[in-house]
Amino acid sequence: MISIKNLKASIGEKEILRGINLEVKAGEVHAIMGPNGSGKSTLSSVLAGREDYDVTDGEVIFNGKNLLDMSPEDRAREGLFLAFQYPVEIPGVSNINFLRTAVNEIRAYHGQEEMSAKDFLALVKEKQKLVELDSKLANRSVNEGFSGGEKKRNEIFQMAMLQPKLSILDETDSGLDIDALRIVANGVNKLKSKDNATIVITHYQRLLDYIVPDFVHILYKGRIVKSGGKELALELEAKGYDEIKKEFEIAE
């Protein structure tokens, strides 16, 4: 699905990603954990194509194509989806209009016809249920005046609508209470299939109780310093990040 090799990225003079290697196959769920400032959000931003970062080295192959050569919109059209840590409020653009534009631009990219209004609305109805999103929210401006939980559910609703191959959930658990967390996780789990993959980026183990990963990677100072199965997350939860910091501070 995606193969990241020696990925290095910086902002200005500051190198944030210092050689990331990661291989994700279809059907897998990977969790990336790490303390604040370790580069988790930078990794998701670089993969989604945010222009604030300079990629200085490495390569990312996504379904056989060079991801880093593509514009953000083409990455999305190829099937990459980023669930934002801070979903952006866009007053004046209705959720529905926004999604219809997105769905149809993605279809056009693949040489498919526009989806009819009827089919589109049927799809909206079906996918709204998945994340228990109030139908009123779908008609409102994108994320405007949404609560934290509603914003995150809206991200997963969009993911359901766009049916990506690879989803990156960037701190999707932040700001969620336990009920909202369950709804969001439930939505993600239902969308899981043998043909798609998920990267869950999180600070806490909590989310991983609901979205059970196949692999857990610990990111520290711009590198993946440790990889393992789901038990690694529990170990991390028990020991805390200080252990990791100590261990790899010495190794530096």
Binding site: P72, A102, V142
Partner: peptide, 12 residues
Amino acid sequence: ALFYLKARGIGD
């Protein structure tokens, strides 16, 4: 906002 829209597949 522009990046958010693009990240959903909407062209510039």
